[in-house]
Design a binder for these strands. Structure first.
Lengths: 320, 320
DNA sequence: TTGTAGGCGTTATCAG
DNA sequence: CTGATAACGCCTACAA
C-alpha cells in the first residue's frame, strides 16, 4: 500500500483539490499500477447516489431511438452519470420487467418512451420515488414530465402537404401499431376528414413489425383495395422506402402517378430515388432535452416547463 | 415489517424452495405492496458476484451490432445476468474510457469487439482478472478467446464470385477504415492479385464514417478515377446501397454495365432495385455464441475451443 | 490536509 | 426452516 487511509484514496478521486499534490500523485500512481477502479456498487451504497440513470426504448433496430439514446448519453456522460439502456420491444409487459431490473440498480432517475405503461409499472415507479421523464410524446397526464413533439400535428401537416399538392385520394398505411403510430393515424384522419376526403378503405393498418420489405407488401395490398389512390402517407420511412422500391419494380411513376410520403427523415431518405418527402423528427434533441430535464429534477431544481414540445419539420422532396 | 429477518427475505427471492410456503407468500406480498426491489449494488458487494457483464461495440447506427447485442442479451438474460452496453465509436481511446467505466460495475466478464485495443486497455483488463471474449474477428493472439468469422475469407469469396461472373476490372471501395474493413481489403487484394488483375487505382479507401449518402459520392469518385471499372465491391451494404441509388439516377445499368456488391446482408439489401449481392454475416449468432462462451468462462468451465469460426454466406442476387 | 467511526443493503457462514 | 453476525468497498460526518 501507499500508506494512506482508504478515505484519502476516495477523496483523491472525488475531490482531487482537497488532497495534497504529493499524495494525489502517489495515489494515482499506485492506482495505475494495480489497475484500481473505484467500485460503483460500494460507492452507490455508501453515498445513496448511484449515479446511474436508466433509459428504456422500444427498439434499437429503429435508428430513431439510437439517435435519441446518443443524445441522452452525451448529456449524462458530461455530468458523470452512467446510462443503463434497456429495450422493451414495444411491449408494456417487457417494459415492466425492465423497470424492475433497472430499479435494482437504484437509478437516480429514469427515462421512458411514451406513456403506454401498465398501472403496476407506474406504481413501481412511484414507489421508487425517483424522477421520471417521458420521451417522444407530449404528456397527457397531469404532473408527468415529457419531452417530444406532437405526433398528431406532424401527421396532420403531412396530410395537408399532400392535399396542397392537389392529391385527393390520399391513403394512410401503418404497421407496428404503437401509440405514436396511432397518434399519426389520428392526425391523418383529422386532416383528411376536415378536407371532406376520408374514405376508410384507404387506411391500411397492420400490427406487424415495420421493415422495408413490409413496405413493398403493404403498397401492393393497398393498391389492390384502393387502386385509384394518388398518394400514400406511410407511418415511417422504412415502409415508405419499401414502397418506393416496389414502385420502381412495377414501373409506377412517383410522384406523377402516386405520391409517397414517410415519417422520421432517416439518413437514407434523402438518397432514395426519388428522394422521400417526410417529417424530420427531433429525436436527437429529444434525447438531449429529456436528459437535461431529468438531470435538473435529480438535482432538485425546478424545471420551468413540465412539457417541452420540440416540434418537427416537413421535408418536401421529390416523392411528392 | 412482516416480522422476518432480512436474510430470510433474501432467501425468499434467491432460493424460494428453501423458505416455507407461508413465509414466502407473506414476503412476496409485502414486497409487492411497498414496491421492494433487491438492490444489486448491495448484492454484488456482499456476494462478490455482480451478475453484470459489459459489452462494448463500435456503433449502434450500424444495425449489424444491434443484432449482435440482441443475441448477447438473449443469452445473458436467460441466465440472470444484466448486460451493460457501451459504444466506443470505433475509437480505441473511447474504448479505454468505457472499459474503465464498466470495470467500476465489477462485471463478471466482458465482451469486446475486435482486437484493436490499446496496450493500457489490455493491462486494465488483465488486472481486472475477468474473462474476456472478443467478437467479430478471429483471434490472432495466443490465449485470446474469440467468436466471429474470417473477414478476409469472406472478402475473398466475394471477389472470386465477381471474377466467376466474368468481371475483370473489379474495384474495392471502403470507408470507416476499422480493422475489419481493412481485413476485407486484404481479402479482396489476395483474390484479385491471384487472378493477376490487381490495379491500384481501383481501390478507393476513405476514413469517413459509412453512410448511404457516402456510397453515392464514392461511386462517382471511383468512376472518375477508373471509368472502365465493371464491378465494385463495397466494404458494406450501406455504401453499396448508395451506389445503387446513384446508378439509378445516372442511368448506369446494374449489373450489365456495372456489377455492385456489398457486405453484411442488411435486411434492406434484398429489397433494393436491383437486389444486392452481398455476404451474409452471422452477427446475431456471434452474439449468442460469444455470450455462451463468456458464460462458460465465468462459471469456470473449460471451453472446448478458444476460437469459434461461425463462417459466412455469399448471397448472390440481381446486382451482380 | 488527513484520519476515525459507523453504516449503506445484501449475502456467506455458521447456529439454533 | 430461520436467524445472528460479520463483511463487501466506499462515503458521510466528525475529529485531529
Amino acid at each position: 500500500m501507499t500508506g494512506v487511509s482508504t478515505i484519502t484514496v476516495s477523496r483523491a478521486f472525488r475531490h482531487p483539490e482537497k488532497v495534497s499534490e504529493d499524495l494525489r500523485r502517489r495515489i494515482q500512481q499506485a492506482a495505475d499500477d494495480i489497475g484500481y477502479v473505484r467500485n460503483r456498487a460500494a460507492s452507490a451504497l455508501a453515498s445513496n447516489r448511484s449515479m446511474n440513470i436508466a433509459v428504456l426504448v422500444p427498439s434499437l433496430s429503429n435508428s430513431v431511438f439510437v439517435e435519441t439514446v446518443t443524445g441522452i448519453e452525451k448529456v449524462f456522460r458530461e455530468h458523470g452519470y452512467q446510462m443503463l439502456m434497456g429495450v422493451n420491444h414495444y411491449s408494456a409487459e417487457e417494459e415492466e420487467a425492465l423497470v424492475r431490473a433497472y430499479l435494482a440498480f437504484a437509478p437516480d432517475g429514469m427515462l421512458l418512451t411514451g406513456f403506454n405503461h401498465r398501472d403496476s409499472t407506474r406504481r413501481l415507479l412511484e414507489q421508487a420515488g425517483i424522477p421520471i421523464v417521458h420521451m417522444m410524446e407530449l404528456s397527457d397526464r397531469e404532473g408527468a414530465y415529457s419531452v417530444g413533439f406532437s405526433q398528431e400535428a406532424a401527421a396532420q401537416a403531412m396530410t395537408e402537404h399532400l392535399l396542397s399538392r392537389g392529391r385527393q385520394r390520399i391513403a394512410f398505411v401503418a404497421s407496428q401499431l404503437d401509440p405514436r403510430t396511432l397518434a399519426r393515424n389520428r392526425g391523418y384522419r383529422d386532416a383528411i376528414i376536415r378536407a371532406g376526403l376520408y374514405e376508410s378503405h384507404r387506411e391500411l393498418l397492420v400490427p406487424d413489425q415495420s421493415s422495408v420489405a413490409l413496405g413493398a407488401v403493404l403498397l401492393k395490398r393497398l393498391l389492390e383495395q384502393a387502386p385509384d389512390t394518388d398518394a400514400i402517407f406511410f407511418c415511417n420511412d422504412d415502409l415508405a422506402q419499401g414502397a418506393l422500391f416496389e414502385c420502381l419494380r412495377q414501373g409506377i411513376a412517383v410522384p406523377n402517378r402516386l405520391a409517397v410520403a414517410g415519417f422520421n427523415d432517416l439518413a437514407i431518405s434523402e438518397c432514395t430515388v426519388p428522394s422521400l418527402t417526410t417529417i424530420k423528427t427531433p429525436r436527437y434533441e429529444v434525447g438531449v432535452e429529456a436528459a437535461r430535464m431529468l438531470l435538473a429534477l435529480i438535482e432538485g431544481e425546478t424545471v420551468p416547463r413540465k412539457v417541452i414540445d420540440l416540434g418537427f419539420q416537413l421535408r418536401a422532396r421529390e416523392s411528392t
